[in-house]
Write a protein that binds this DNA or RNA. Structure first.
Lengths: 214, 214, 214, 214
DNA sequence: TATGAATGAGAATTCATTCAT
DNA sequence: GATGAATGAATTCTCATTCAT
């Protein structure tokens, strides 16, 4: 996926695309500006017209992820479940979003890989990640959670953050496991496994004791 | 936690410990052999007596994690829930392990951070990670899952891998969220939140429709 | 002080002024054409319409100093002491010139700093400096010296060059010391110190032995 | 002249010598570490084992000038006039020191050129220059001046700083003029000119009015 | 004529690795 | 075995200069 943007020049887009590809491939420190330049088809010096330092490229990716990707993906995606489709069924909502957004998720995966890795090491990256993406997503999900609770579809005993994290956690590990360890394991049928994952999210893995409504 | 070992010289241990500390702090590429040497209190050249290249240090950490750490932590730890403590209560089991192993988890966290990061980028690291740790853990959990299913405590409709991943995913994100984004958020009470997380794992976040026993 | 000129376009003047400011601040090598352009309020490319290379800017400054500044400052300034004011008193002459020309000296100081610095390293700059300024000043001072000697006010045993250099040397170090090391030292009263400097120039620092009229 | 030193390795000396040569030739900014390395016969990386940054090379030169050169040259040289030789004759003292130290002065000239140039642009260099050299020289000269005044050989009306500066200024310009502009001018006989310079320093360039003892 | 994006050569600096001691 | 000085390739970044618009 190329990076779409509004106020971004052709060159800047090419550089950002190349940077995402190379950094996602090798990690930030191991990626060299010379390789990014080569991949982008520009001179190395050109990179530094658009990004003052190498670290600014990383920030650029983050900002981009936040502005251009996260907004439609997270906010609009979640809102779609909530308002537009008027669904009351979480399962259908998740599947709908996943199907709908699969291409985007695949495209975003390299960016996410970069951001997650670097967030582990740098407080400032974490801050941007939080401000631009996490806090926004939490916000949207809290609203969603509230409505679902009101409709009697989600447990009010579990906070929105915990609930949202459970969805995210299960889906992320589902994808990571399949994408990174796919070659090593015998993969189950995609839809069948996804159904199980959603089951786990919605109803848990334990069999409730009789009379145990929690 | 220091690295204990059998067939490892005093020097090699010191180097490995230092490497774990430094690489966990900065990431593999950004960590320099000179800093590892300084931290280990040996000469830079000495490192290359024990590890032919810098990458071999990484392999050393992995091997070490696999051989020395993973076995007691994963296998023995999981088995402890399963057999030794003879628990039938997943909630109690999880809490027990978390309490019991907290110190170990803290100690292992730097290593895990390294391995997880590098596994994202290198197939070979992933392979080692899978062979040494994941496949072993899956194995043990499958056995556990089977018993739990037989005892009517876990759903047989959800595969062991999916169930185990759900536990892992929720707990990992719980810790990551608190540890990495702690400064940015208003943290809930630890025990209260953990209880919610376990609830989510065990019984899901959705309210089952009437008559919906899934 | 702005650079006045005849056959110089508005733009060229602005560039030259900016170049003098920037180069005087950082030195020639450390000054970048981009900063000069920014300071001049023109595009970087524009500079190279007026000056083929960066070094040509330096030459431009020199030429300018020679043509436009040196003539009125040096020649006219010195002649003023000599002929116009008709002074026979060196002390009064020096003080008069200093007072009179202080603003000009301040304005010229940046240019001088550039030229002096570069003259230390480049023979060709030195040649221009000599041809345009030094030789002219020596010429004028020789004439002055001759008159003073004839009037019995200056020693004929000391050549004009040595005498002129003594004036220049003492005054330059007086200014340099105060301007560059001012913050580090406890400065004497300006006028009192200047009087001492002129005393030193005129009558030396030693007490003449009895009967020693030299 | 090679840089002599006590606690300096062979390599460090070679690098410092090369740095002095190259920087004195081209100026600090225009001198590249690669050329210094080539001239020193070491790898470029080696330079940075001894000097953390390029600027530290400059500081190294300064420190060196201060410790190794200035001490014997300035302090010991001045003291020689003062105490050892027991001279009461400033002229003889100056000539003695100049003769004696000529080789050193020639050797020190490149270093001085560097230091003077950079001191014009950098406050921190100025500070080191002041602390290490100027303040020491002023100190020694003040003592000398005091004794000369007591002996009736120097004027008490002219402060030590002004007097010292006059000596320095005249001698420096004498050397600079000859060394830098030598090719362009018809040089006077060295000894004859030096005598005139000393005359100017000691007794000034003006003919004292009758009864004017100042 | 003026612009400023693009260039690429070259700058300072780092660092894994080697090797003589 | 252990050291750490030395290396030089590679890295990030700067900047004078060019050229299409």
């Amino acid at each position: 996926m190329q990076v779409p943007d509004l106020k971004m020049s052709e060159k800047e887009k090419k550089i950002l695309d190349a940077a995402i590809a190379v950094i996602s491939e090798k990690g930030f420190s191991a990626a060299s500006t010379s390789e990014i330049a080569r991949q982008a088809g520009v001179a190395e010096g050109t990179i530094f017209r658009y990004f003052k330092t190498k670290k600014d490229i990383l920030r650029g990716i983050l900002i981009h992820l936040g502005n251009v990707i996260a907004e439609p993906l997270v906010v609009y995606g979640l809102k779609k479940i909530l308002y537009q489709d008027g669904r009351e069924d979480l399962r259908a909502g998740i599947k709908l979003v996943l199907k709908d957004r699969m291409a985007i998720i695949d495209a975003v995966f390299p960016m996410l890989r970069i951001v997650i890795t670097e967030a582990m090491y740098h407080e400032d990256i974490r801050q941007i990640l939080y401000d631009k993406i996490i806090s926004r997503a939490v916000e949207v999900f809290e609203e969603y959670h509230l409505e679902m609770v009101e409709k009697g579809l989600m447990k009010k005993e579990i906070d929105a953050v915990v609930a949202g994290r459970s969805i995210l956690a299960n889906l992320v590990l589902f994808f990571v496991y399949r994408n990174l360890f796919g070659p090593m394991i015998q993969l189950d049928d995609y839809d069948r496994e996804l159904d199980q994952v959603i089951d786990a999210i919605m109803h848990g893995i334990a069999i409730p004791a009789v009379g145990d409504k929690k």
